[in-house]
């Protein structure tokens, strides 16, 4: 349910403008660019709420979040944001169909228990899903596994296999295949480097899969 329309909202107090776009993680800036004004947004894995605060302040969005980490969730709530402590695997099922225009899952898909089910829920409760994930098909990952015979350790995949929360790594091509399998329309996609800068492989999933460190997809149901 939206709050009062954007044009009648009172001016924001300085305490409310805690995050500005330039301080935001670059991949979140890219996501923010994909979301139109006044949208109803659910950010799964919202952290301290940087994207939510930005969307609320700059785009008049009705933005809500779910965060698994209690300290981060508390920080977001203390900043006046509508965030619940919870997780993608267990809490999405309770939202009604079509409750949101956009459901965002940034850098979290690879860490959930059931990625396919989470995607299904995202596209049930939202008209669009925006998903970003680290690409396990990047050439350095491939090279390390080939050359050393051990699990890759890169700036993106930097935790040893027995400690990593990333239990479901996938590549960009894997993700395209899952979308095809479950009948999702890829409305937009891009591959970016670790800092979220767009990389020039827009036309070729194969090249993106080799050179893109992070992938960003916008999906909808067919």
């Amino acid at each position: 349910m939206p709050d009062s329309p954007a044009d009648v909202r009172p001016p924001l107090r300085s305490s409310e403008i805690r995050y500005v776009a330039k301080n935001m993680r670059l991949d979140l800036r890219l996501i923010a660019e994909m979301i139109p004004r006044g949208a109803r947004v659910l950010d799964i894995g919202c952290g301290d709420g940087a994207l939510l605060a930005h969307l609320t302040a700059e785009k008049g969005a009705d933005a809500r979040g779910i965060e698994i980490d209690m300290a981060a969730a508390t920080q977001a709530v203390a900043a006046g944001l509508a965030v619940i402590q919870g997780d993608a695997d267990h809490d999405l099922a309770f939202y009604p169909d079509g409750a949101f225009d956009y459901v965002v899952l940034s850098r979290t898909l690879q860490a959930v228990e059931k990625p396919r089910e989470v995607l299904r829920q995202m596209l049930r409760i939202g008209r669009h899903a925006i998903v970003s994930f680290p690409n396990f098909g990047h050439w350095i990952v491939r090279w390390q596994l080939l050359a050393t015979g051990r699990m890759p350790m890169t700036s993106t995949w930097h935790r040893p296999w027995h400690e990593t929360p990333n239990i479901h790594p996938c590549t960009i091509r894997d993700f395209f295949e899952l979308c095809a399998l479950d009948g999702y329309v890829v409305e937009e996609w891009l591959a970016v480097d670790e800092h979220g800068l767009k990389a020039p492989w827009r036309r070729s999933p194969r090249l993106a899969n080799l050179f893109g460190e992070q992938a960003l997809f916008q999906l909808r149901r067919r």
């Binding site: 944001l81 509508a82 619940i84 402590q85 809490d91």
Partner: peptide, 20 residues
């Protein structure tokens, strides 16, 4: 959490924290 889930099902604007 049951209250929160019911509020989510009602599409309400809700924040939730469990304090340690």
């Amino acid at each position: 959490r049951a209250i929160v889930r019911a509020l989510n099902a009602a599409a309400a604007n809700v924040s939730f924290v469990e304090i340690a």
